[in-house]
């Protein structure tokens, strides 16, 4: 059971193919699998569907795959920061399925947990509920949402051991955990791979059972909105 690969391209070898449904971790540009996205671009795979909260910006994150027209469909909650996305969507070149953010996270979690559908009150009475089964529980109305079962999950973590146990850092955990669980195969890119035994077993955020391939690499970790305060305000 060798999980550690030399780089993102090798980790994708034999895994990536046209028409795949890929679940990707990250929120905005925070905690996105930037190395794997770059390698997917290089692979030339076409007609990809991405379940990802956001679509990156024009030149970073999933945005780079929009530039090369490798994406057929996005399942996202917010795509406001990407001009190329808007252009392709308004031109009818790109399919878009908006999911409320919590519904998207739960769809991934459910898929990973073997749950094909769940009822939620999020979106009842809105366009999100159109065409979905409604059911009342204890006098309140809920809609049926389906679990996401992705062909591939790509995630970014802070540290991994060579068995695939992952630890995330601060708010970079976000969608990486639910995304990782809902893929038939999950590839994780991390900042550091450490030998087994060096992570505290009580502090593992995602057990290695969910992670099939791991790569270590240098991450740009771009900041989307740099906001600061002056020292004298303290």
């Amino acid at each position: 059971m060798k999980k550690v690969y030399a780089n993102a391209t090798e980790a994708l070898d034999g895994v990536i193919s046209d028409g795949m449904m890929i679940a990707a971790g990250g929120f905005g540009l925070c905690g996105i699998p930037e190395l794997l996205l770059e390698a997917i671009k290089d692979s030339g795979a076409q007609d990809l569907t991405f379940a990802s909260n956001n679509a990156g910006v024009d030149d970073f994150g999933i945005g780079i795959l929009l530039q090369t027209k490798q994406v057929k469909k996005m399942i996202s909650s917010y795509v406001g920061e990407n001009a190329e996305f808007m252009r392709q969507y308004l031109a009818g070149e790109l399919e878009l399925e908006f999911n409320p953010q919590g519904t998207l996270a739960e769809r991934m979690r459910a898929g990973g947990a073997g749950i094909p559908g769940f009822y939620t009150k999020t979106g009842v009475g809105t366009v999100i509920a159109d065409g979905k089964e409604h059911k009342d529980f204890n006098g309140e109305t809920y809609i049926l949402e389906e679990g996401i079962f992705a062909d591939l999950a790509i995630v970014k973590a802070w540290k991994a051991d060579d068995t695939g146990n992952l630890i995330f850092r601060k708010t970079a955990r976000n969608f990486n955990v639910p995304a990782a669980t809902c893929g038939k195969i999950c590839i994780a890119e991390v900042e550091e791979i450490v030998p087994r035994g060096s992570l505290d077993p009580d502090m593992i955020h995602l057990p290695g059972i969910y992670v099939h391939r791991i790569i270590q690499g240098q991450h740009e970790k771009r900041i989307e909105q740099r906001t600061t305060r002056k020292k004298e305000e303290a």
């Binding site: 905005g28 601060k170 990486n176 955990v177 970790k221 989307e224 909105q225 740099r226 600061t228």
Partner: peptide, 30 residues
Amino acid sequence: PFEGEEDPDLINAGKQTITELSRTAYFDSA
């Protein structure tokens, strides 16, 4: 954060850089 102390792994839902407190807890989106 103070200028120069921004952490790309620490943002709010508006994607702005922020800081943590002594009470802070992190968790995944689900």
